[in-house]
């Protein structure tokens, strides 16, 4: 126990897991930032995106493994992202938007309803049996000074980093990204600037859903694709978003990574039984809610005048 190599091994495992949580957490946090509402169907959007990715991949990858399989994998991922983006926007338009001026509970219940509808539809259309998504490359680990790293982990890290940097640049620098921040800070004032808040909300759902589909497709290589695959992962990513400070984009990234590390190191170093691994997230949630309810990077809500 405790050799340097082992430490880096867990670090690597924790970072990849955390990166996945972070990608999913971003969707929760961006939607919350603008609508002050938790999209409980987010995990199911992830699941649908993973199915679409899987079907696309199986349809186009061909017989033999080669460079094309890798390209096909990314095309499939893109298909899943696009489909989920459209699905996210459609759900917002149909199930949430009409309730925007209703009580706060209404869209929340609607989201839970959408979540059930999506997972039941998936089970009905595609069956409950989990489907295997084949690696597009040889996934035998590479050993680096005693640390085993799989190509899958490298893929996850690379995609996560690219997505996060792209998102951060988009939100900080682009015209639409700034409008997104303005809308989440103060929707009415954003409208006064000429910003079409409805359009910004739709874009937010599209981006969040596409990121979730990406995460789903990446983990599907390991955990397979099944109708309830988004439930636990989604819930934990939601916890990550709260831990980081819900509504805060950097917070979601931080919360996701932290949660991944916590789960990995919790089991490996603290000796938490593997069976209790899923509870770590919720213990972290309770602690953060008690100690710093606004989350690590969140700002304490001030009463609006």
């Amino acid at each position: 126990m405790g050799s340097i190599a082992e430490f880096f091994q867990h670090l690597m495992n924790g970072l990849t897991l955390g990166g996945i949580y972070a990608l999913i957490a971003l969707g929760y946090t961006m939607v919350y930032g603008i609508l002050k509402f938790i999209n409980f169907a987010h995990g199911d959007i992830l699941m649908v995106g993973s199915y679409i990715g899987l079907f696309t991949f199986d349809a186009i990858r061909g017989q033999t493994m080669g460079p094309w399989t890798v390209i096909a994998f990314f095309i499939a991922m893109l298909a899943g992202m696009l489909f989920s983006a459209g699905l996210g926007m459609a759900i917002e338009r149909i199930a949430y938007k009409p309730l925007r001026r209703a009580t706060r509970l209404a869209p929340l219940l609607s989201a839970i309803g959408v979540s059930f509808i999506l997972s039941n539809m998936a089970a009905w259309m595609w069956g409950t049996k989990s489907r295997k998504l084949d690696y597009p490359f040889d996934n035998s680990p590479i050993y680096l000074k005693g640390v085993s790293i799989t190509p899958h982990q490298i893929l996850i890290l690379a995609v996560v980093i690219v997505m996060m940097v792209a998102l951060k640049l988009f939100v900080d620098r682009s015209r639409i990204g700034k409008a997104m921040r303005a809308t989440s800070l103060d929707q009415d004032t954003a409208k006064l600037m000429g910003i079409k808040a409805d359009k910004i909300i739709a874009i937010t759902f599209a981006i969040g859903s596409a990121l979730a589909a990406t995460a789903g497709f990446l983990i599907a290589l390991e955990i397979k694709v099944y109708p309830s695959m988004g439930t636990m992962t989604g819930l934990k990513a939601f916890v990550a978003a709260v831990v980081g400070g819900i509504g805060n984009i950097s917070g979601a990234m931080l919360g996701g990574i932290l949660l991944g590390l916590l789960e990995t190191f919790g089991v490996a170093l603290l000796g938490i039984p593997y069976g209790l691994r899923d509870t770590i997230a919720f213990v972290a949630l309770i602690i953060i809610l008690l100690v710093k309810p606004e989350g690590l990077l969140g700002k304490a809500e001030k009463e609006k005048v």
Partner: peptide
């Protein structure tokens, strides 16, 4: 607007 409503985080 009343109360200025500048985007505080920007």
């Amino acid at each position: 607007p009343e109360g200025r409503r500048v985007f505080a985080d920007m």
